[in-house]
Simulated scan of single mutants.
Amino acid sequence: MRTKEQNIELIKRLSNANGVSGFEDEVAQIGRKESESFCEVKEDSLRNLYMTLKDNTGKKPKIWLDAHSDELGFIVQAIKPNGTMTFLPLGGWSPNNVPSSKVRVQNAKGEYLSGVVAAKPVHFMSQAEKNASLNIENMVIDLGAVSAEDLKENFQIRMAAPIVPDVECTYDEQRDLFIGKAFDCRIGCAAVLESLNQLKDEALDVDVVATLSVQEEVGERGVHAAVQNIDADIAIIFEGCPADDTFYEPYMIQTAMKKGPMLRHFDRSMITNPRFMRYTLDMCEEKQIPVQESVRSGGGTNAKYIHTSRYGVPTIVVGVPVRYIHSHHGICAYEDYLNSVKLAVELVKQLNADVIKQF
Rank of each mutant, 00 (worst) to 15 (best):
N96S: 13
D244V: 09
L46F: 15
V209D: 00
M277V: 01
A108L: 14
V208R: 03
A303W: 00
I234S: 00
F38P: 00
G330E: 01
P321K: 10
F74C: 02
A132K: 15
I8W: 10
K258S: 14
G58E: 11
I236D: 03
T315Q: 00
R296Q: 08
R32Q: 10
V98W: 05
A17C: 13
F124E: 09
K259M: 10
A132F: 11
N48G: 07
I356W: 03
Y337N: 04
V140P: 00
L199T: 01
G115P: 07
I79H: 06
I316G: 04
E220Q: 15
Q350H: 15
K200Q: 11
T86F: 02
R310A: 08
N154Y: 11
Q358R: 15
F266A: 02
A191F: 12
A67Q: 02
L46E: 01
V348C: 02
D231A: 13
Q228N: 14
E168K: 14
H307S: 08
C169N: 01
D150W: 11
F266T: 10
V317M: 01
T272Q: 01
F266N: 09
V192M: 07
L143Y: 04
D176L: 08
E285I: 11
G73E: 08
A232W: 03
I179D: 09
E239K: 06
V317D: 00
